[in-house]
Design a protein around this nucleic acid. Structure first.
Lengths: 332, 332
DNA sequence: CTGAAAGCGCTTACAG
DNA sequence: CTGAAAGCGCTTACAG
């Protein structure tokens, strides 16, 4: 049953040509007569032949594979990023080799990726260790990082303009005349949360306000629940809270309504970050910052592709503006 | 800068052995003395060598890659499935080659997968066409389908027990004494939605009830909104609605509360399917059926791995029971 | 246990 | 445009 698989030589015989010709028929821009190419395609179709991408990779030293290093796929932000990246990689005629850093060492996963000779690496997981960067450099593979950057390093990275987005939110909350304004951070260690906070605080200061309260929710719904309980226990109560992501913002709304009897937005304005699809649902109708994932992933792919064509152009940094989406959770 | 990459011959020279020995050092169970293996590892580490997985694949005709054919990654159910599969594939010492069928022809994507000589194929996307099955068979690659099965075909598939789960929900709603019970289907064409409906209706009948209303929401929040508007306009109104997934169930709750002033669960019990993380949030606190994704993906991997060890055992079908998670959206 | 040699399936200068 | 030949980096009988 497991029939012997078909190779270029089989196609060559059937079409009455050489293996070289078969190879050329499947190579864009190779010099081969149109009639011969057609004859070969005919034979190939009849036999169900497609070139072995593994053998091709070995000889051309281009695998046409992009390596992805991800984590936290339960978070809709990351799964949406993956979705778009995967589609864009496909559209470029390549394939996606995926490794998750959840419960796995990022350097080992990168090493796996590189052993498959991926042409380039995209990552959103893990903080950018020196080892990761060095490994990519040693293999001469372009590395593009999405939304997880270090301040240092000459690494190409694409991220949302977290500082400016924080400022946007500050402007919005001041405009609605919130007085006691809180911030719930994602985690202390991520630059994205710190940048959002920095922009937010700067934005408040510029408008003559100070941060009234601050807590940490670790980017999770449950963490948000606990932070919300602490922050909403303050007296006088905050009248607006900005959260570093949507999951925590939804938690704040839930705690406010069900445990404190606080009306949202009347007594409390709430703003999130990410614009997750579910944040738009009526029950939350959450004001949030859209990170423009489509632009983010397009920018990442553009860097990657141009780096593949002409390597070593040096690192590029792209910052994509965030878009404030005002919904009823912060109306007044 | 792009330093010449290091190959087994370089390691061999440094360690003073043959290339064969280097290869054996990196092959589990190959006969090589322990001292030599250590010496080789030493040299390899010094040079930063790892065997080229592409070359290895070519010669062994095993790529250690599992091909995934997915779609609808925006749906948390599928992104959670991907997350678990990817981790389990990694843990088996393999890698994940991912293609999305969103806006792409499934047969072409499968062909891409096969051109990379994946050892097996897992799919949740697309309905199982004859072409897909035939292609896998011709290449002698095991194929396991998750939650998208046809009634025919001798294909290994793993799915939630949709019929029994529908019955569970029926039992629950009758027990809470709902009288006018509705069902909102996912789509007519998916067997999963039809099976849930069949089990549900059977379960109602067994308890002497009939379905009071029925509509279709295409598995989306927006589709659920529209279906909810129609179903909730019926007079007398339904007093319970079972939806084929959580997104539609949340839509029903939102429409009931904000457009009809209906109290959930007091005036209307709502039950979903999937147990998405966000369905547990206070605002919905949704009763739902958990598909046990962890069991589902484990079962799929088990079939795959045993098929890789001893091919052609014939198709296996695994049905994983669903678990009814009762929350406040259906309490009385 | 060990090394020399053949070969995995392809592509690509090279010479015509 | 075309084919014969070399070679991509590895693994694995084979003989010792």
């Amino acid at each position: 049953m497991t029939r012997k698989s078909v190779h270029s030589i089989d196609v060559a015989r059937l079409a009455g040509v050489s293996r070289s010709a078969v190879s050329r028929a499947f190579t864009d821009g190779a010099s081969i007569s149109e009639s011969k190419r057609l004859r070969i395609f005919e034979a190939a179709k009849q036999l169900g032949y497609r070139p072995n991408a593994i053998a091709r990779s070995l000889i051309t030293s281009r695998s046409n594979l992009i390596g992805l290093l991800l984590a936290d796929l339960k978070n809709p932000f990351y799964s949406n990023v993956l979705d778009l990246l995967c589609q864009k990689i496909q559209r470029s005629g390549r394939g996606t080799l995926l490794f998750s850093c959840e419960y796995a060492d990022p350097e080992t996963m990168l090493s796996n990726l590189l052993s498959y000779q991926v042409d380039a690496v995209l990552m959103t997981a893990a903080t950018l260790s020196a080892g990761l960067v060095e490994q990519c450099e040693r293999f001469g593979k372009p590395l593009v990082v999405i939304n997880k950057y270090t301040e240092s390093a000459g690494i190409s990275c694409v991220s949302c303009d977290n500082v400016a987005s924080g400022q946007l939110v500050a402007g919005h909350l001041v405009a609605r005349d919130s007085r006691r304004i809180g911030y719930i951070a994602g985690s202390q260690s991520t630059l994205s949360s710190r940048d959002r906070e920095r922009g937010f605080i700067d934005g408040l200061r510029e408008r003559g306000r100070d941060l009234y309260a601050r807590d940490v929710g670790y980017y999770t719904y449950q963490g948000g629940i606990e932070a919300a309980r602490r922050v909403l226990s303050l007296l006088p109560r905050p009248d607006a809270i900005f959260c570093a992501n949507d999951a925590m913002a939804c938690a704040v709304i839930d705690v406010a309504r069900s445990e404190f009897g606080i009306r949202v937005p009347d007594d409390l304005g709430v703003v999130g970050f990410d614009n997750n699809p579910s944040s738009a649902a009526n029950a939350y109708d959450l004001t949030t910052v859209d990170q423009n994932i489509d632009d983010l992933t397009t920018a990442a792919m553009n860097i990657l592709l141009s780096e593949l064509e002409a390597p070593s152009k040096g690192a590029r940094q792209v910052v994509v503006p965030g878009r404030l989406v005002i919904r009823s959770s912060s109306r007044r």
